[in-house]
């Protein structure tokens, strides 16, 4: 296991760095709108927000190619947007409309876009790890240098599929990244109460693969770790376990009355380490961003989200009879 040091600004083109900021901001604004609309009764069921963890999805996905495949969790909006999903179809899915990614059959917890290698948000903790490991096996058999990324939380790291899949991936040298988003809580339960070790990445030693702990709120640290792991995977050297220490700002779900037992001082401390503010600061320091540019990015994002809501609201609901479509493929 290695501990990455505080990242320095990497040797990335300014446009790439600004794009990272734009994607992180898009995730945040999308979810702010989704939770507002959820509270307004326009979005149903349950919504889990990723706010505070944006650097993980964007940092990792910035190291991927379009043809690489990822899988997400119940907290999946961030991974969708980071991989390039269409906001209109995402919002329409949240609104339960026919034009949504899943034609209104999935909702917030099940958005997928196989066309961009996003194999779906998954409502079962640890449920996606084996599926995406199969995508890694497919990439290896295709022999075109593709990689696959499993995003999962600290909670999933204690479930059986984590062990089963890391063992297989290490044994078969699958081109995989296992990215643990350690936000320190499995729903309400603190990780310290359910983990014998403080670092999930330490378990990599048991599989003979690299295990890396990074500051999950530092997008350059995440990006650099992911980039190394992607290089290793593409070279045929097998998987890497990357643990991103991060924090979710909001409660486990947006449900009204959802308990949040965390110490408010802890929440505030993590908000002071806002991954977006940190990147913004670094871009300004490098002279890659000024107020005017930032305002333009914000305007652009808010316009896209407003357009997504308009698209969703203008879209028809599925007809009731469509409930029986797509149980089986043709």
């Amino acid at each position: 296991m290695s501990l990455s040091t505080q990242s320095l600004s990497p040797n990335l083109p300014p446009d790439t760095q600004r794009e990272m900021l734009r994607r992180m901001l898009t995730i945040r604004r999308f979810e702010e709108r989704a939770s507002d609309d959820y509270r307004a009764g326009k979005i149903y069921g349950v919504v889990h927000c990723y706010i505070g963890e944006e650097a993980v999805a964007v940092g990792v996905c910035s190291a991927l190619d379009r043809g690489d495949r990822i899988i997400s969790t119940h907290r999946g909006h961030g991974h969708c947007i980071a991989k390039g999903a269409d906001l209109n179809r995402m919002m329409a899915e949240l609104y339960g409309r026919q034009t949504g990614y899943c034609k209104g059959k999935g909702g917030s917890m099940h958005i997928a876009d196989f066309g961009i290698g996003m194999l779906g948000a998954n409502g079962i903790v640890a449920g996606g790890i084996a599926i995406v490991t199969g995508a890694g096996l497919a990439a290896q058999m295709e022999g075109k240098g593709g990689v696959a990324v499993s995003f999962f939380g600290d909670g999933a790291s204690n479930a059986g599929p984590f062990h089963e899949c890391l063992n297989i991936a290490a044994t078969w040298k699958l081109p995989m990244l296992y990215v643990c988003e350690n936000n320190m809580y499995a729903a309400q339960t603190p990780a310290a109460a359910t983990h014998a070790l403080s670092d999930v990445a330490a378990r990599a030693a048991g599989y003979g693969i690299p295990g890396v702990v990074v500051d999950g709120n530092d997008i350059f640290a995440v990006y650099q770790a992911a980039n190394r792991a992607v290089d290793r995977a593409r070279s045929g050297d097998g998987p890497t376990l990357i643990e991103c220490k991060t924090y979710r700002w909001r409660a486990h779900t947006e449900r009204r009355g959802q308990p949040d037992l965390r110490d408010p001082a802890e929440v505030e401390m993590w908000k002071s380490r806002d991954p977006i503010a940190q990147l913004e600061h670094q871009l300004r320091e490098q002279g890659y961003l000024d107020d005017t540019e930032l305002q333009a990015v914000e305007r652009d994002i808010m316009g896209a989200i407003e357009a997504a809501v308009t698209f969703a609201e203008a879209s028809p609901f599925p007809s009731p009879e469509q409930a029986t479509d797509d149980v089986f493929a043709a």
Partner: peptide, 22 residues
């Protein structure tokens, strides 16, 4: 494979969704 029916069952899904027929 290892004796891990859960992993194999799930891996088949991911491989199938990636163009294979496991």
């Amino acid at each position: 494979t290892p004796i891990t029916e859960a992993a194999l069952t799930g891996m088949a899904i991911g491989a199938a969704g990636s163009g294979f027929r496991p």
